[in-house]
Each structure stands twice: as C-alpha cells, then as structure tokens.
Design a binder for these strands. Structure first.
Lengths: 120, 120
DNA sequence: GTGATGTGCAAGTCGTGACTTGCACATCGA
DNA sequence: TCGATGTGCAAGTCACGACTTGCACATCAC
C-alpha cells in the first residue's frame, strides 16, 4: 500500500539537488547513484543520501541488477502531492466564491429591504 | 505578472510550519502574523519570517488594514506547482507506456519471425 | 585470482535556516 | 494624552541537513 505522505514529498522536493535527481530520473528513465552523480556537481555519496530521502518519501524505488542498484521514479507520490496542492487552492477559491455570493446576496437584500433609507 | 517559480514554492512548502500557515490561511480565509502565531507553537516573529518566504514564493500576498497587515493565499502559485508535478509524473508514465509498446512490438515480431524456436 | 567498477557504512565538517529575544515605532480606543 | 495592541528591524543562538572523505565489501571481465 505504501501510503504517500504529502509532508515527506514536499520536504524531499524542497532541496534543489533532489529536484534535479527527480527530473533526471523522469527524463532518462532511471539510473544508478553513480550515473546520477556523473550528471551532478556532488559526490556519489551525496546522491545516495538524497535517493534515500526520495525513497523514504515514496518518490523513488530501487531494484538490484547485478552489482548495481537501479532507481526509478514513482509518479504516484507526485500526483498525490499535486492533488493536495490543488485541494488547498480549490478550498481558497471556493471560499472566495462563497464570499462573493454572500456579498452579492446581501446587496440584493439590502435593496429589497430598505432601498429608500440607504441611498436617498 | 509575478511569474511563479516552482523552485521557490517547493522550498517554501518544504518547511512544516509554513505548510500549516498555508493551510490555516486557506481554511480561515486569511489572517495576520499575530493571529497566525496564536494558532502555532512559535512566536510572531517566526511567523513573520515564514510569511516573508511565502510571499517571496508568490504563495501569499498582504495588504495593510489600519494597524494590522492581513495575509491572504494566492492559489496560482499552488496550481502552477501542482502542474509541474503532474508534468514530471506524466513524463515518466509516458516513458513507461512507450517502453511497454516497444516490448509488445518486439514480442509480436519475434513470434512472426521464428514462432517455433521460442515456445515449443 | 586480479584489477576494475559499483555499492555500503561511519564519521566528521560546515553552512544555513528556523526560531527567539529585545526594543523602537505606528495605530486604535478611552 | 495614555495604555493597549500590532508591526518592523536587528542580532544572536542552535540544531539539522547537505556534503565530503575514507575504507570495507561485493560483483564483473579477463
């Protein structure tokens, strides 16, 4: 099941190096810590530690192939976090819409109730 | 215009306190640094600094009302970042689909070329 | 077996980001 | 005008995360 925790994903993607790792994995179709380190300005060990964080966040999975360990992306964690963001945005948009409706209704009612006492 | 930079948004949301601030703003419909600090285990100054980061990331905007400064959410930054995530996920999914098709095609061709030598 | 390549583990350095404290300045109500 | 409330600025503490270095262990090709 490996539930995706939005917190972990956001904390993982908060680091620029890890974002590049994710993008590299998405573009090149997976790779090893060594191959990724070759495309980054950091050592293999740094990449290993980043991959551990990404794995912990459910953004990446690994499988052994002979003497190397190949990492691949796990898009579910990304889509789940994208949904969380969309939800927060929608919650806010919805609130704005409701406020707009209330304001509108209030204006209409004010006109119906006592149009002469207000503006005259 | 205030272009939204995904990097800034992800770095901003990487911090748990800032995530709570964003969620509080979305749920309660805006607030001041002081009111937010009342719902958090940190001081007002900490909230002020967090709001500065969120503002820099385009996640929040502020306007002065008398002696207080009211902060509101800016959903565009969230939706833009959600789209970036969906894009990365889609890029990976697309790659998987292509690989699956290639494998399928190769299998069909193998059967057409020499069906008896493979499964017998 | 031997060298080359790739990984795993441990410890240590170092910067920076989160948070606090303290005080000065502005605005509201009495 | 005075107290209460809210904000702004500055400096300082402190923990944690990013990264490196060093070495041991596993796997492949010859």
């Amino acid at each position: 099941m490996t539930a995706v925790h939005v917190e972990g994903v956001l904390e993982a993607l908060g680091d620029p190096t890890r974002r590049v790792v994710v993008e590299l994995l998405a573009a090149t179709g997976g790779g090893t810590a060594t191959s990724l380190a070759g495309q980054l300005p950091v050592t293999r060990q740094a990449v290993v530690q980043h991959l551990a964080v990404l794995r912990e966040a459910g953004l990446v999975e690994s499988r052994r192939e002979g003497r190397e360990v190949r990492f691949e992306l796990r898009p579910a964690a990304l889509t789940a976090t994208a949904e969380w963001m969309a939800d927060v945005a929608a919650q806010w948009d919805n609130r704005l819409r409701i406020i707009a409706e209330i304001a509108e209704t209030a204006q209409v009612e004010a006109q119906l109730d006592a149009p002469r006492t207000i503006d005259g």
